[in-house]
Amino acid sequence: MTRRRPTPSADDLLTSLGRLTAQALERAESQKARVELAVALQRELLPAVLPQVPRLRCAARYAPARHGLDIGGDWYDGFRLPDGAVGFSIGDVQGHDVEAAAFMGQIRIGLRAVAAAVEDPGEVLSRANELLLSMDCGLFATCSFLRFDPATSELADARAGHVPGVWATADGDWGVAEHPGGVPLGVLPGEAYPVTTRRMSDTEVLALFTDGVVEGPSFSIEAGIEQVARLVRDAVPADPGELASQVIKVADLTGHTDDAAVLVLSHQAAQGTR
């Protein structure tokens, strides 16, 4: 005689379905809670306002990724320095979770602390790099750090593995700021970061951004940078807030699998100098 396996009853099936549904809801709620925590951290850790100094206006935007927990690693910052200059940073921490958001906050604070004591942007990044390595957290970050002197309109900047920015002037000149840089922060000890120094033109716009703005499954990084370049060229002279809002939308073309940050600096000639 062949023994047949008992057929699950409707009650058994409903019980199993209920258990699986409860587990799925629990995982979904856990994921939702982590996303909300990461969003809250990002909101609290990014600056509420950016410094405005004579002849230079600035604005920034941040956008989370559209899917999953891809949030928390990107940042922008701007702050006044003891000698009257202004420091700016923008960067991207490895990873997209609550830990990345918390680490991003530590980097921002570290950069501010070092920049208050050191003028050279390359030295700022070098010391920040050693600080991150000493923390032994296993994460790294790309970053651009800039120092603007409102008295001379001199802009000095250094890059640590970060995507280059785009600049344009009122006379139609423009370019991608692909000057030499160093490796990301938190990778190699004793790393040096070259500094590029120049005087901003009387009417100039500089757009800085993270790779989440210009790179994704639907867009190559070259295509993304070109798209940003067109926006920047067409915006001079620019309202920095409007331009930042336009640039952050480029992330929608990439597939938006990463969070994204934009920082725009708009330099204007002093009245009576034109």
Rank of each mutant, 00 (worst) to 15 (best):
I221Q: 15
S218R: 15
G165D: 03
T203A: 13
S220N: 13
V205C: 09
H162Q: 14
P189F: 11
V183R: 06
T169E: 10
Y193L: 12
M200W: 04
G175Y: 08
F209R: 01
T203H: 14
T210Y: 03
E191P: 02
S218K: 15
A170C: 04
F219H: 08
G182P: 00
H179I: 03
L185H: 03
V163D: 02
H179E: 13
V195P: 05
P194M: 15
P164E: 05
L208N: 01
R159T: 08
V214L: 10
G182Q: 03
A170G: 07
V195E: 02
V205S: 00
Y193V: 06
F219E: 13
G181M: 07
E191M: 14
V183S: 08
V187E: 04
A168D: 06
G186E: 04
R198H: 12
P184R: 06
P184E: 05
P180Y: 11
G181I: 08
P194A: 15
L208R: 00
G182K: 01
P194D: 14
G186Y: 03
V205E: 00
V213G: 07
F219T: 09
L208M: 15
P194Q: 13
A177I: 06
T203R: 11
D173H: 14
G175L: 07
V183I: 13
V213A: 10
W174D: 07
P180I: 09
D171G: 09
T203S: 13
V163I: 11
L185M: 13
E191F: 13
W167M: 03
A170F: 08
V176M: 14
E191L: 11
R198V: 01
I221H: 14
M200N: 05
V195R: 00
P180L: 11
G165V: 01
A177E: 07
V166E: 02
V187W: 09
S220M: 09
L188P: 04
A177N: 10
T169H: 07
T196W: 05
P217L: 15
W167D: 00
G175R: 07
M200G: 05
L206A: 13
T210F: 06
D173Y: 02
R159E: 00
T197K: 14
G186P: 04
A207W: 09
R199W: 00
G161I: 07
F219P: 01
A207F: 12
G181H: 04
Y193E: 06
G161R: 14
V166K: 02
V205G: 01
P180C: 05
D202N: 11
A207E: 10
A170R: 12
P184A: 14
D211S: 15
E178T: 14
E204T: 07
P184M: 10
D211W: 05
L206R: 12
S218Q: 15
L208D: 01
S201A: 15
V214W: 01
A170S: 04
W167Q: 01
V214T: 15
D211F: 10
A160Y: 04
I221D: 08
G216D: 11
T169P: 00
V163S: 00
E215W: 08
R198K: 06
A207L: 10
E178C: 14
H179L: 05
V166H: 02
V213M: 10
D171L: 04
S220H: 14
G190A: 12
V166Y: 01
